[in-house]
Design a protein around this nucleic acid. Structure first.
Lengths: 255, 255
DNA sequence: AAGAAATAGCGAACATCGTTCGAGGTTATT
DNA sequence: AATAACCTCGAACGATGTTCGCTATTTCTT
């Protein structure tokens, strides 16, 4: 059973994520901080990949014994949660971006699209962490705020945020898995796999996939990303416009 | 470094996924089959969760020594790939569903939406496996086939498939992480986390999130899923219609 | 000032995991 | 019969996350 699955103490994780961290009343001065640990973990993961992150590695980077970390973090699952909330803090809040809701969502999506490709391990993290931290929550609140005055219900707003975010993540995952990644480097194990694969796959069985490949689809291209994004935003905008036409739309509600 | 990250021999994985498996020329009769191993792994994962899957567990379930598995599978990463392609075989091919492209995509999305919630570990698998198998490829070919005659380019078709799939995955992940999951059971560690969380989060800092919660949003509700799905399909349909209007649309191309 | 309490640091150990090795047994070809 | 190819598997290797017990340090209590 891996670290990310253990249930552990939920309250401790919540406190760790949400409680302002202060110096304890007694005992020796801590030589480390939670932030330094999380930062070291992120640096390692950025440099060597998600699977290269280990508690021993983090400790070594910080020049402490491995077990020292456990005075600060209950376990690796909690470290994951802290890492994820930290990177959530990097994203700019959608409601501070310029333009109307559509421009703001598009800008947010493009920013995430770039970030995910630069830090692919965030995609892995999100698959393992379930508890949101303060930064994630603040970001979500901002994303919902962008939809103020659109006439959408709260349910619809949340569904909208999820739809856009889901699209971005899937597109980024495709791009990360893509053989070339648009970087011009055609060597490496991934490309090898595709090359070997090409020898085994029967073109007659998958004519449309083969045709797409022949036409040179690039899973990591911005054009592909933009197409999906615009279609999605089109659908949302059409709904907002249609609803506004069918009922008066107050710019702000007051009960 | 975890099993899923090792590069290993790409060709061996490709052969394992793609080559029809026949009895070897000499040597004793194999007591196992790849299918039995994969099936056992899926059963364990279904019953005890993704992180409870271990090579030792699979061997034990099959009544063999652990190292025996390595005559059939190079490693756990390859087992993951085989598991994923096996579940990909469960999905019905979109082009065999009734209706036009929109009805077919909606039906596929709903099917996946149900499957992902019943087998949440598939979401974890997809985050780790990058090489597609024959079933996945056949499914993709079918999904592209549904868009025949829509006037979309190959790039656009692929982007469309990815957009819908991304939406479904994100919605399913939300649903899986949701505290109640619509099952009426409000105990368990996840709910504990939310309960504890409620005590720490400051409503004033996240007014819109709090309001959504107060209005009783259910991340696992079908209504939420349908809303996002329909908006996305709306956007795609509008694009198809607009393009058809601007240029003659041959039902089939021929060069 | 002195003792108690609480915490930090950490080496060593534990349990588990994926994986490899090598010996011994089985089957089909030569 | 001899050989080559393969299967099986106990034992071991290396790595991981985590716990334990001890010492040292700082602060609170008296």
């Amino acid at each position: 059973m891996s670290a990310a699955e253990r249930s552990s103490d939920p309250e401790r994780l919540v406190r760790l994520l949400w409680e302002p961290r202060g110096r304890p009343a007694r005992g020796p001065k801590p030589g480390l901080t939670l932030d330094r640990i999380v930062r070291a973990a992120i640096e390692i993961t950025d440099a060597k990949g998600f699977d290269a992150l280990s508690m021993r590695g983090v400790a070594q980077r910080l020049g402490v014994g491995t077990s020292t970390l456990y005075s600060y973090v209950p376990g690796k699952a909690e470290l994951y949660a802290l890492m994820l909330d930290t990177v959530a803090g990097w994203s700019s809040h959608p409601h501070t971006l310029p333009g109307d809701w559509r421009a703001r969502y598009a800008a947010w999506a493009r920013e995430d699209w770039a970030d995910f490709r630069q830090h692919p391990w965030v995609l892995r993290l999100r698959a393992e962490v379930t508890l949101p931290g303060p930064n994630m929550m603040a970001w979500l609140d901002s994303a919902l705020r962008v939809l103020d005055g659109t006439g959408l219900t709260e349910h619809e707003k949340l569904a909208t945020v999820g739809a856009v975010d889901g699209f971005v993540r899937r597109a980024a995952q495709d791009a990360v898995e893509a053989p070339q990644g648009g970087q011009g480097d055609s060597s490496g194990p991934v490309t090898d796999v595709v090359a070997v694969l090409a020898g085994w796959v029967d073109p007659a069985r998958y004519p449309r996939v083969v045709r797409a490949i022949e036409e040179g689809v690039d899973l990591a291209s911005d054009a592909r990303f933009e197409f999906g994004l615009q279609r999605l935003l089109d659908g949302i905008e059409a709904f907002i416009v249609a609803r506004a036409a069918s009922s008066p739309a107050p710019p702000h509600r007051d009960p």
